[in-house]
């Protein structure tokens, strides 16, 4: 009976929810790390930094589903974290900035893949590659600072 009471006590409930919250955050960071890896490699290939022996278009093609999976994972875990205090996030200007940067970054990634697959698209690839890297850098920075302001 007392054991059950201990299980029900608010302290226990908070401890449990902190563990779950931190677990979802861990997953979110894992997806971001992997997503960041895919984006970095794609962006570098776009700006022409991939060495000989690595075809940029094939690289992006090969990373397409891992990249999409990482986006989906980061979005689902991000949505769960958002749901815990939606009002707080919505009133945080950095959250809006992060979403705009993310949407732009995802759009630019599509353009990058298209320009790399097109013959003669190297100039555009370079532009989209740099834009992609900068936008993701901004999105991650905004994400980190959301919790701080």
């Amino acid at each position: 009976m007392l054991d059950q009471l201990a299980e029900l006590s608010p302290a226990r409930a908070i401890a449990d929810s902190i563990a779950v919250f931190a677990g979802v955050e861990s997953l979110h960071i894992m997806f971001i790390a992997f997503l960041g890896g895919c984006v970095l490699v794609s962006g570098l290939a776009g700006v022409g930094a991939a060495p000989r022996g690595i075809a940029p278009a094939a690289l992006l093609q090969g990373l397409r589903w891992p990249y999409r999976g990482a986006i989906a994972g980061a979005a689902i875990t991000g949505a769960l974290l958002f749901a815990t205090s939606a009002q707080k996030y919505l009133s945080n200007p950095l959250f809006t900035v992060k979403l705009i940067l993310l949407a732009s970054a995802i759009a630019v990634q599509v353009l990058l893949a298209r320009s790399l697959a097109r013959p003669g698209g190297a100039g555009w690839s370079r532009l989209f590659g740099i834009a992609s890297l900068l936008l993701w850098l901004g999105a991650i920075t905004a994400g980190r600072w959301i919790g701080l302001i």
Binding site: I29, I32, G37, C38
Partner: peptide, 21 residues
Amino acid sequence: FPILQTFHIFGLVLLVGVIAI
């Protein structure tokens, strides 16, 4: 402190994201 935390995440992406691939 938060600037270092931000760099910690950038480094983490460079290290773990790339190693994972």
